[in-house]
């Protein structure tokens, strides 16, 4: 093979440049995760509408008002929500967009909290490592609180996380640089760094389902109705009636001034 010095340098340089471009623009891995799904435009798939009025009208992003209520007196800690959430998003092992905590309070007002594998495997065994004088035990499902004053949005240096006009805190994984400021900022530990995409990820209240008139996956599978979701523009929705009614609703870490739109029913003071 005959090759002169000039050609050789040209080839080496172009090879090096094109090679380094692969480092700058990594292969899109997010696409692979969602390949295996129900296509929204698919006429064959019958998905009945669960949030009324979403499909009938053009979605006006400025006029939406959704609420999420968790009734912890009805939660039985089965972990259906956690399983559904993992399957809906193919969440990598060890990370949780939503999880269920077990609280045990004894007569000395000691509080014991545990959450084995985020509640993914359910709670099969009682705790044996604590004194036996428990007086109050309950499960607390946790997810994104969709704060009106979201600390995660405030700290993001690149505008990769934001509050959409319809009140959802969403992630723009194209812009996320993976600095993890938002993960530290979130008082509810709702965020994590996806080990595959290296970008921050969080519960979105299943924004893609809501926009298609479906309930979030966790609400869909909850067997006891402990998780409730609906539009406040619809006066017949369960969440509207609860929010309008006299029942006591609380939010987590109220003193932090994050103004969550996730409400809890039957919440104990000890829950943080």
């Amino acid at each position: 093979m005959k090759i002169d010095k000039r050609d050789f340098i040209k080839k080496v340089l172009s090879g090096a440049i094109s090679g380094s471009l692969f480092l700058v623009f990594p292969l899109d891995t997010t696409g692979i995760e969602f390949q295996n799904g129900i296509s929204p435009s698919d006429a064959n798939v019958k998905l009945p509408e669960e949030i009324p009025e979403i499909r009938a009208r053009q979605y006006d992003i400025h006029k939406q008002n959704f609420a999420f209520i968790v009734d912890i007196t009805r939660c039985i800690g089965c972990g259906s929500c956690c399983v559904a959430d993992k399957r809906e998003y193919n969440v990598p092992d060890g990370n949780y967009r939503t999880w269920v905590e077990r609280y045990i309070k004894d007569f000395d007002d000691q509080v014991y909290v545990d959450c084995p594998n985020g509640g993914l495997d359910g709670y099969q065994k009682p705790r044996t490592d604590i004194p036996l004088n428990a007086r109050d035990t309950f499960f607390v499902p946790k997810l994104c609180n969709m704060c009106r004053e979201a600390p995660c949005v405030q700290v993001c240096p690149v505008g990769a996380t934001f509050t959409s006009p319809d009140g959802f805190i969403l992630m723009d994984s194209d812009r996320c640089v993976g600095c993890a400021y938002c993960i530290q900022a979130c008082p509810y530990s709702a965020r994590f760094l996806n080990p595959i995409t290296k970008t921050a990820e969080k519960c979105t209240w299943c924004y893609h389902r809501v926009r298609k008139g479906l309930l979030p996956a966790c609400v869909e599978v909850c067997p006891t109705g402990a998780r409730k979701f609906g539009s406040l523009n619809d006066e017949n929705s369960e969440v509207y009636k609860i929010l309008k009614g006299p029942g006591v609703l609380t939010v987590l870490k109220q003193s932090m001034g994050t103004l969550p739109t996730l409400y809890y029913m039957g919440q104990r003071l000890e829950v943080v």
């Binding site: 969602f34 295996n36 799904g37 129900i38 998905l47 969403l170 723009d172 924004y207 893609h208 869909e220």
Partner: peptide, 18 residues
Amino acid sequence: YRADAIEEEAQKVVRHGT
């Protein structure tokens, strides 16, 4: 923020039916 990110999120495929 990038307003198109909202639509991209909304277009994600659904995996759970009813």
